[in-house]
Design a protein around this nucleic acid. Structure first.
Length: 205
DNA sequence: CCCTGATTCGC
DNA sequence: GCGAATCAGG
């Protein structure tokens, strides 16, 4: 398995989102965590967020575009706490399943295309999305800024839409939740509590 | 023992 | 460039 542009792209996104090397390797498939780490270093992004990491909070922007309640759960995770919230279905994977569809359509038009002959890992069954969430997603899709990979910053929603292998691919781009990779709407969909996932954890870092 | 990323070094 | 083996640590 070689590092194709798509794979490197996914690696960058997932890494910047804070996913661990082993998890990225697992999702990319065909590589080990060592391979991922090695690649990360070779790409020179061993550091996870120096690029646009400035403690600069623009409340106006976030408030203007997402004037929703800003309940800040006490859950401040660092990969070492067995939190109940984790990406249920990593959209960054090959088949993001952009919920850009109406509730009427039982199935998104986006089909798992046979793009890139990589052994795409078994996509974890996506949990049900609440009707409210779907409604919001439909709205958000219209407001999406359709940013390209390089336009993403720490404060833009990195929810992918479309197929990374085609030009019909973009990221939501709306103001993301502080500390989260997605806007509030996408966070709600991506970070669903997953039931079956061992949480035995004690000391991680 | 589980896990994490970092580094080395033969390929 | 690649990644297994290894290292260093939680």
């Amino acid at each position: 398995m070689s590092w194709t542009d798509e794979r490197v792209e996914m690696l960058k996104v997932m890494w910047s989102e804070g996913k661990s090397a082993s998890q990225i390797a697992k999702e990319l498939g065909g590589v080990t965590r060592n391979a991922v780490i090695g690649k990360v270093h070779r790409l020179g992004l061993s550091n996870r967020g120096p690029g646009s990491e400035h403690p600069d909070e623009d409340t106006a922007a976030a408030e203007a575009a997402a004037p929703m309640e800003q309940a800040a759960p006490p859950a401040e995770e660092e990969q070492e706490v067995p939190e109940p919230s984790r990406p249920a279905a990593p959209p960054a994977a090959a088949a993001p399943r952009p919920p850009v569809k109406e509730a009427a359509a039982p199935v998104p038009t986006q089909r798992p295309k046979p793009v890139m002959g990589q052994p795409l890992p078994p996509q974890p069954a996506q949990n049900e999305i609440s009707p409210e969430a779907l409604a919001n997603l439909a709205e958000v899709a219209k407001k999406a800024r359709k940013l390209s990979l390089m336009q993403l910053t720490e404060r833009t929603c990195k929810w992918p839409v479309g197929d990374p292998a085609t030009d019909d691919f973009w990221f939501c781009g709306l103001p993301s939740q502080p500390g989260k990779p997605y806007c509030e709407t996408h966070v709600a969909v991506a970070f669903q509590p997953m039931s079956a996932r061992r949480d035995r954890r004690a000391g991680g870092r």
